[in-house]
C-alpha cells in the first residue's frame, strides 16, 4: 500500500502522469537494495548505527549529526510512550464472550486422515478395481482392433 497526505483530494488533471510517477516512486521506495550504494541516503550511516544500538550517542554529538540525534531523541520519547500502552480492560472480556463454546478441535484434511480398512470395504475396493481394469482392457482392445 502506498498513501499520501493528499490522497483524499481526488485525481488531478494530470492524474495519469501522476499515477505513473507514484508507481515509479513506490517501486523505488520498496526496492530492498543496500543503502549507501545509490547515493540517495539522506540519513548518515552513523545515525542508523546509533539508532540500532551499535554506536554511542556521544560519537554522533561530536560530528555533524547532532541535529539528527535531537530529532530522533524527540521521536524516541513518543515511540517509548507507545511501548507502555495497555489493552483496554474490556477487550479481554469481549474476546472471551466471542469465543466458540465448544473446545477447539484439530481439523485434519482428508488426505492426511487415517485409513480404516474393514473386510467389507476391502472387498468393495477390490471389486471396483477389477471392474475398472476389465473396462479399461476392453476399451484398449477395442481401439487396437
Amino acid at each position: 500500500m502506498f498513501d499520501d497526505f493528499n490522497s483524499e483530494s481526488g485525481v488531478r488533471n494530470d492524474g495519469r502522469a501522476r499515477d505513473r510517477q507514484r508507481d515509479d516512486a513506490r517501486n523505488l521506495f520498496e526496492r530492498e537494495v543496500p543503502l549507501g550504494q545509490t547515493g540517495e541516503t539522506s540519513l548518515a550511516i552513523a545515525v542508523h548505527a546509533w539508532l540500532d544500538g551499535e554506536l554511542p550517542e556521544s560519537v554522533l554529538r561530536r560530528g555533524d549529526s547532532a541535529r539528527d540525534v535531537d530529532f530522533w531523541n524527540r521521536l524516541g520519547e513518543e515511540t517509548s510512550a507507545r511501548r507502555h500502552m495497555r489493552t483496554p480492560t474490556h477487550i479481554q472480556d469481549r474476546i472471551m464472550e466471542a469465543l466458540p463454546q465448544h473446545a477447539p478441535q484439530l481439523i485434519t484434511p482428508w488426505f492426511q486422515r487415517e485409513l480404516v480398512l474393514t473386510p467389507a470395504s476391502a472387498v468393495a475396493i477390490g471389486s471396483a478395481l477389477v471392474a475398472v481394469t476389465a473396462a479399461a482392457t476392453a476399451a484398449f482392445m477395442g481401439v487396437i482392433r
Binding site: 521506495f29 530492498e32 537494495v33 543496500p34 543503502l35 541516503t41 539522506s42 540519513l43 542508523h48 539508532l51 540500532d52 541535529r67 539528527d68 535531537d70 530529532f71 530522533w72 524527540r74 521521536l75
Partner: peptide, 22 residues
C-alpha cells in the same frame, strides 16, 4: 532485509517530520 526496511522508514519519516521537529 529488515534493516533495509527500518532504514528506509527512518529516512522517510525524517524527511516528512524534520522541518517541524528537528
Amino acid at each position: 532485509a529488515l534493516k533495509m526496511r527500518v532504514h528506509r522508514a527512518r529516512e522517510a519519516l525524517q524527511a516528512l517530520l524534520e522541518e517541524k521537529y528537528a
